[in-house]
């Protein structure tokens, strides 16, 4: 590849990294994540006390609704149904526990070899083994998450993230910020353009709130 092109790509990457650092620094300071979609400015912020109360009320209401819906099962009932169909989720849990125990032992060895400055070969060997176990654990975790995706608990969690996004999403109007959606009904009926904003905002929602 052309050296100048390589150099340009390197500079662009560094610039992007610096940009990301500045953005993260900015939002840890005041808990406000600013972003732009189609040249318009938006932000997500930490909920205040009254918004947290509103979130809690909506969450409880939704929980009651979900409980009455016979098509939506609690995680424990879903696990039971899977077992009847030959899919044993407890086996996945056992496998994860086994991997965790193995990982603990390896991490202890790796930690000791770092503390005792045992040299790159030893450190690299343990590190590689830990990495392999992490991948293995993540695969099983994803498998379990996919199986339980439609449980009542997960449906509720996904609803909670939607509510937080609805409550904390603001748009810049002249020199001030105002809520993008005044009601949850309007949020649910968002246009395609508004959905673009919601999707970007949703990525940040989880960073700020302790759900």
């Amino acid at each position: 590849m052309d050296t100048r092109l390589e150099e340009a790509q390197k500079i662009a990457k560094e610039y992007e990294e610096q940009n990301q650092l500045a953005q993260v620094e900015d939002f840890i300071k005041d808990n406000k994540v600013k972003f732009t979609v189609d040249s318009k400015n938006y932000r997500i912020r930490l909920l205040n006390l009254s918004e947290k109360n509103e979130l809690d009320t909506l969450r409880r209401k939704k929980f009651g609704q979900l409980l009455q819906d016979k098509d939506i099962l609690l995680e424990k009932d879903l696990v039971k149904q899977y077992k009847e169909r030959g899919v044993d989720i407890s086996e996945l849990d056992d496998s994860m526990k086994k991997i965790e125990a193995e990982m603990f032992n390896l991490q202890m060895k790796l930690g000791e070899s770092i503390a005792k400055n045992e040299g790159n070969t030893v450190v690299d060997t343990y590190k590689k083994q830990v990495e392999e176990l992490i991948t293995e654990k993540n695969t099983i975790f994803t498998q379990k998450s996919m199986l339980l995706e439609y449980s009542l608990e997960n449906q509720l969690l996904s609803y909670v993230y939607q509510i937080i996004t609805y409550l904390s999403l603001e748009q810049s109007v002249e020199d001030s910020w105002e809520r993008m959606f005044t009601t949850f009904e309007k949020f649910e009926k968002a246009t395609e353009e508004q959905e673009k904003v919601i999707n970007t905002a949703a990525q940040y929602t989880v960073l700020l709130q302790n759900v």
């Binding site: 603990f104 390896l106 991490q107 202890m108 790796l110 930690g111 000791e112 770092i114 503390a115 400055n117 045992e118 790159n120 450190v123 343990y126 590190k127 830990v130 990495e131 992490i134």
Partner: peptide, 19 residues
């Protein structure tokens, strides 16, 4: 201790666990 501890999350998590 080895400066490699700063390499990534696996390294410092393992070190903290051991410590």
């Amino acid at each position: 201790i080895s400066k490699r501890v700063l390499e990534d999350e696996i390294m410092w998590n393992s070190y903290f666990l051991w410590k």
